[in-house]
Simulated assay, not measured.
Amino acid sequence: MEELTKPRKLLDQVRDALRVKHYAHRTEKTYVWWIRRFILFHHKRHPQEMGEAEVKAFFTHLAVNGDVAASTQNQALSALLVLYRQVLKQPLAESIDVVRARQSKHLPTVLTADEFQRLLQALEGIQQLLAKLRCGSKKGYA
């Protein structure tokens, strides 16, 4: 007599798919969290009943109301791509036309070689040594 087995829950299937692909445990937890958030945003509808329109609505919400960074939105998109492509076998379009979060406009400050040389000359003793060590004492700088 064959024993009937219950199908695994959706989020367990996601975990299985991520483990097969050797994703990090922290990534697995984060992806499951994003998928759960997507489901809750759509009032607990099963993702199989939803498609690109609901994905677009979720990402528009994240960008406009959720005030998330572009990298955070990309992480959420990756989670949903795993869900739809690997678990539900319903591939989404390669490029989903959604409102994207803005990229950070912050640019790192970098000293020119001349500025760095003047900075080193202004330092003395242990502070100068530490600055040279911290910056790798590259030829031309120190």
Rank of each mutant, 00 (worst) to 15 (best):
L83S: 10
V98G: 11
C135S: 12
Q86R: 06
Q117P: 08
K89Q: 11
Q103P: 06
A70E: 08
K105C: 01
V68I: 03
V99L: 08
P47A: 00
A93M: 13
I39R: 09
P91S: 06
K89Y: 09
E49Q: 14
L80Q: 02
A69S: 09
R102Q: 08
D67Q: 14
E115R: 07
K44H: 12
R102T: 03
A76D: 02
V110C: 07
P47D: 10
A57V: 04
D67V: 09
F116M: 15
A79E: 00
S137L: 13
D97F: 02
K105L: 06
C135H: 08
A93S: 13
K138A: 10
K44L: 11
A53Y: 10
A57C: 01
G66Y: 09
I39S: 03
E124W: 12
E54S: 11
E94S: 08
K132C: 14
M50P: 03
L62C: 03
T72Q: 01
L130D: 10
A57T: 12
H61W: 11
A53L: 12
S95Q: 15
L62V: 06
L130E: 04
G136D: 01
L80S: 05
T72E: 00
A69L: 00
Q73L: 06
A76G: 04
A93Q: 11
Q86T: 02
I96Q: 01
H61T: 09
Q117K: 15
V68H: 04
A53V: 13
A76E: 10
I39Q: 03
A122V: 02
Q121T: 13
I126K: 06
L83C: 07
Q127F: 12
A53I: 11
S71F: 06
K132A: 15
A63H: 00
A131S: 05
F59V: 02
K44V: 07
L81M: 04
L119Q: 12
K138V: 11
G125L: 00
V99N: 06
D97Y: 04
V82H: 00
L40W: 13
H42C: 03
L83N: 01
D114S: 15
S104G: 01
L80W: 05
L80K: 03
